[in-house]
């Protein structure tokens, strides 16, 4: 298996607040990695450090064995290899669905509009939004917006997709359509890193599950390791808490 992303001794603080303490993480090609953990444990920060939306204080991040924290590393180009999906969708409100999926290709990848349109349409089909190409974000439901956002990230043809709680801002009836879309993607062999609170989904799609607690990776293993036979007390407590609250 080939490594795409490798994180070593990653540290990040906001002022006095030490958010990531000493993170080591490897993501291999074709792998689906889910990150679980309670709110505030540093999951988002880890994801944002990986594509450098946050600047790490210390540690190393390798993309295909190149250190992306080198002073003259081409950051914008690096980011095109990582697709990011946000909790709040963050669609461009001035563009319709198709333009949302084309603008990155045209502006950053310098593709022709025709080529970009083809790619955008293909990916919108994958997320089931090809019938909405002329719609503005304000005309879509939350679930539709998130599927477009996934289509937008896919249109850049990234090596890895990063999802930061993609269903947390959705009304319950829309969670299903987004999870289904992601499940389909997982089956295509796409490399994915997913922060989520959807335990059933995580258990279903994950090759590997990472449990984070207070800025460290507390436990790591297969879905079975974590969900059926967790070793750490913290993991058990977390799962207990979240599964019970889910049943309410």
């Amino acid at each position: 298996m080939s490594e795409i992303i490798k994180v070593e001794h990653l540290k990040k603080s906001f002022g006095q607040n030490v958010v990531l303490k000493d993170i080591d993480l490897t993501v291999n090609k074709g792998e689906v990695v889910t990150i679980i953990g309670s709110s505030g444990s540093g999951k988002s920060t880890l994801l944002r450090c990986i594509n450098l939306l946050e600047k790490p204080d210390d540690g190393k991040i390798y993309y295909k064995n190149e250190n992306v924290l080198e002073p003259n590393y081409n950051l914008p180009k690096y980011r095109t290899h990582l697709g990011m999906v946000f909790q709040q969708f963050n669609l461009f409100n001035n563009m319709n669905v198709l333009e949302n999926c084309m603008t990155g290709q045209v502006t950053v990848l310098k593709k022709s509009r025709e080529e970009a349109k083809q790619t955008a349409l293909e990916n919108l089909k994958k997320v089931g939004m090809e019938r909405f190409i002329d719609a503005k974000p304000s005309q879509l439901s939350g679930g539709q917006k998130q599927r477009v956002a996934i289509g937008r990230a896919l249109s850049m043809n990234p090596d890895v997709m990063l999802f930061d709680e993609p269903t947390s801002a959705l009304d319950p009836e829309m969670v299903g359509e987004v999870l289904k879309t992601m499940k389909n993607l997982a089956h295509t062999g796409l490399t994915m890193v997913i922060v989520t609170h959807e335990m059933a989904f995580a258990r279903d799609v994950s090759d590997r599950v990472i449990f984070m607690d207070k800025g460290v990776i507390a436990e790591e293993g297969t879905a079975e390791d974590i969900f059926v036979n967790p070793k750490e007390k913290r993991t058990k407590e977390f799962l207990h808490r979240i599964l019970n609250s889910d049943n309410n």
Partner: peptide, 27 residues
């Protein structure tokens, strides 16, 4: 213009100038 759109543009690999031109200024 919400901060999320700046970040989304950045995550697509857009520079500050590109983000301004394509995403922010039109809005």
């Amino acid at each position: 213009v919400d901060k999320g759109q700046f970040e989304a543009a950045q995550a697509l690999g857009m520079t500050h100038g590109q983000t301004m031109r394509k995403v922010v200024v039109p809005q």
